[in-house]
């Protein structure tokens, strides 16, 4: 394991403390605090939520409630690449489901298991991305891909794997 990986948690904790300070440890800023923390950690670990509750003086059950209410927040680790497939009405009628099936098959994922064990990919569906003119739409992190086919989607994934694997090795 590299030195950076060894002390990653320490960097993240420093960042988390800075985030709490940036919002003045104000319990009414819980949502922006959670947003910023999720950006740092890529998900919201339970231990981190417990710490946020402690630091803000809010019951842990309340923090858990807020974190589970919004679809934006995730309590399970997510991949470095989050693939959001639109399954809104327009994308659905334009065959979004075969894309989903192709992606899941390629990455060995299911409706319950959304993230690959190597934490490289997360595949999830969203109800509408507001880009119905490009249907069916796939968004990988911040990059939007329109009129996607199953083959196209899998090719995008292969490309990322090819780019990432040498770096990891």
């Amino acid at each position: 394991m590299s030195a950076a990986a060894t002390i990653k948690g320490s960097r993240q904790f420093d960042a988390a403390c800075a985030i709490l300070d940036r919002f003045g440890r104000n319990p009414t800023r819980l949502i922006p605090i959670l947003q910023a923390l999720q950006e740092e950690y890529r998900y919201l670990p339970g231990e981190l939520l417990a710490y946020v509750a402690t630091a803000l003086g809010v019951p842990p059950a309340r923090v858990y409630g807020v974190a589970t209410f919004y679809a934006h927040f995730t309590l399970a680790p997510r991949g470095k690449y989050v693939i959001r497939l639109c399954d809104g009405t327009a994308c659905h009628v334009k065959n979004s489901i075969p894309i989903l099936e192709a992606l899941r098959q390629r990455l060995g994922l299911t409706a319950e298991r959304k993230t690959t064990p190597d934490l490289l990919f997360t595949v999830e569906t969203v109800s509408c991305l507001g880009a119905c003119g490009l249907a069916p739409v796939v968004v990988i992190n911040d990059q939007v891909h329109g009129q996607v086919t199953p083959e196209h989607a899998v090719a995008l994934v292969e490309e990322i794997i090819a780019r990432e694997k040498p770096a990891a090795a």
């Binding site: 060894t6 990653k8 948690g9 904790f13 670990p45 231990e47 981190l48 417990a50």
Partner: peptide, 9 residues
């Protein structure tokens, strides 16, 4: 709880 990992030596 498992705790929040900071350094994984």
């Amino acid at each position: 709880s498992d705790g929040l990992p900071l350094i994984h030596g």
